[in-house]
Amino acid sequence: MKQSTLIWIVIVVLSGGFLAWRTAQTGMGRAYVEAETVIAESGETWTIEKTADAKNARSFNPTTESEAIVKLSWPRTIGVWCAAALTIAIFSFLWGDNPFYKLAEAIFVGVSAAYAMVVGFWTMIVNKLFLHLFPQFVVDNILPNLKGADGSYPDVKYLYLVPLVLGVMLLMRLAPQGGWISRWPLAFFIGATAGLRLVHYFQADFVSQIQATIIPLVVLTEQTTMENVSASIRNITLVVGVMTSLVYFFFSWEHVGVVHRISRVGIWVLMITFGASFGYTVMGRVALLAQRLEFLFDDWLWIIDPASRRLIGG
């Protein structure tokens, strides 16, 4: 047996032992729900469950004063363990590519694609496309609220046949032959995006940006001299920074002589910009990692309790 395999076996056994011990001691990883009974006007009843804090469940905390019925939820408890396992599976990539990571990655790809599809189906294809083309079917099965007080249905809107036809043409891309038909809806997409962006980028990212840079280089207001000097330095920095950076991006002139010197200042400004971006990016990534570790320590292992959900810290 290889030494690394032996090490891994020891790690897995120790971790498993720790988890089993901790689960027996604390009941870690359990999720609780508050059950609420809904009574319809027709007399039918059913129960809905909402996430609840463990401290409100009598089985967890006999001293609780909560009157709500809070109980252990097995589906959600399994969910917490599943989420923890998937989190660790992704983290395992840090050691090196391995089957656990690949499995988690494969699940991620499948779930993401289907998730977007389901959301798009219910929000746009049913609520918009089908509703306007087959109003009676949609209202009678999915959107009963849209039935008029007199029992009428929304009108059929035949213009919605256009996106339906374009949509079918788009899906032809999946067919072995006749994929060229999808060029029509693709052209529609490209044309619409170009039309949307042409004017708005001109207004917001070109004209408005230039407008915001036309500012006084010497600020003379009723503020103190120091404040005026400070505002003037700020404005000069901004204007010089924008101008020099733009010169750097201007490639129609050869960057020699004065142009070279100005563009060099522009590079420095851009380097400061990128340095700031790097600092902010680090900040962002660390926050994401902290959140995942909080999940493991809080929801799963019950080592910390920052939101005071179990009365063991906070």
Binding site: Q209, A212, T273, Y280, V282, R285
Partner: peptide, 10 residues
Amino acid sequence: TGVTAPTLYA
């Protein structure tokens, strides 16, 4: 997010 923040200062 930290990644997009610097781009929006303009």
